[in-house]
């Protein structure tokens, strides 16, 4: 090899050869991927930990309480002095009430906001509104819960005099507000992904922006929008603090929205803040409820990923 210039020091290649830490380098190259793989394994271990914990403790629970009376029971009276009853249906009913109201509130508003942002808003408007939605998404749920209890419920009571302090309506609405940013931003992503050429094609034939949004963009982005709604529903099902603070703690198996309710999550919180002794049926019941909750959200997430996969847009 020819060196460009003559100089007193050795050539770089010679210096490199002298520095020669190849063995160490090779060892590092071998060890690092293994270490990183183990780190990546933590997330899998977490899932395994969650599933194993839930199953294990739930099985213990079913040794004390028959599984059928849990699944089909319409009475949830764990603290009863006479005969405790562990029928999950009232808690599921409570969860579904909250979720239903939340979805009814969030889907129209979230979708409208998404359409506005993706199809109508100017860049400036988008630059202001999107961060605000992000803030809305970043508000801790405990704050929303406090808001539901101290503001939304009193306001609703002036409209519906029958409304109790703890009810399904107020936390349901607030959970709805909580998931609006999720629906809005995920749906907007889906709509923004629709190629402009499709919009231009319709606009060039004289379609109005509204027609483009409803007849071109919405159908094209449907899978993304559906997935966003399903994911948001899953969030609503798992929401804890809003319902704990504003929903109350009365498990009831009915379609009453104005009285105190209890969701699965709120029950877990109720037991955790109380002093249920370790090893009692009440202690194990939170795992059985947690497991049920986990299955619900898992199903939702699975559904969302199926929707995105199945209807992946072809553009």
């Amino acid at each position: 090899m020819v060196n460009p210039t003559t100089r007193e020091r050795a050539s770089v290649q010679e210096l490199i050869a002298k520095a020669g830490n190849n063995k160490r380098k090779k060892a590092i190259e071998k060890i690092i991927p293994v270490i990183l793989f183990l780190i990546a394994g933590v997330s899998v271990l977490t899932t395994i930990g969650i599933v194993a914990t839930l199953i294990f403790e739930t099985v213990t629970f079913f040794r004390q309480v028959p599984i059928l009376s849990f699944i089909f029971g319409t009475e949830w009276l764990p603290f009863s002095n006479k005969e405790a009853k562990f029928g999950i249906l009232p808690l599921i009913a409570g969860t579904l009430k909250i979720t239903l109201i939340a979805v009814i509130v969030a889907v129209p508003i979230g979708l409208a906001a998404a359409i506005y942002l993706s199809e109508y808003a100017s860049d400036t408007a988008r630059r202001i509104i999107k961060p605000v939605l992000e803030v809305l998404a970043g508000v801790p749920t405990i704050v929303y819960g406090f808001f539901a209890l101290t503001f939304v419920t009193p306001v609703l009571q002036t409209i519906i005099p029958d409304l109790k302090i703890f009810n399904a309506l107020s936390p349901g609405i607030v959970v709805g507000f909580m998931i609006i940013p999720m629906i809005a931003s995920l749906s907007e992503d889906a709509m923004s992904a629709v190629p402009n050429a499709m919009r231009e094609g319709a606009l060039a034939m004289g379609a109005t922006k509204f027609e483009v949004a409803i007849k071109v963009v919405l159908p094209a982005a449907l899978s993304g929008i559906l997935a966003s709604v399903v994911l948001a529903t899953s969030r609503a099902i798992g929401e804890t603090m809003i319902v704990s603070l504003a929903g109350g703690s009365t498990p009831r198996f009915d379609a009453n929205f104005t009285d105190s309710v209890q969701t699965m999550t709120a029950y877990i919180v109720q037991v955790s803040t109380g002093d249920a002794g370790y090893g009692t049926p009440i202690y194990y019941s939170i795992y059985a409820v947690g497991f049920t909750l986990f299955l619900f959200t898992l199903l939702m997430n699975f559904l969302a990923s199926r929707i995105t996969k199945r209807f992946r847009e072809a553009y």
Binding site: A40, T47, I50, L231, S234, I268, T297
Partner: peptide, 25 residues
Amino acid sequence: DLIRMNISNLAGVPSVVFGLLGLTI
């Protein structure tokens, strides 16, 4: 693939369930 899928599923697990994991483990 399993690790990737697992991460997106984990993101959807309610926080209260993580609490149960923490309590047990």
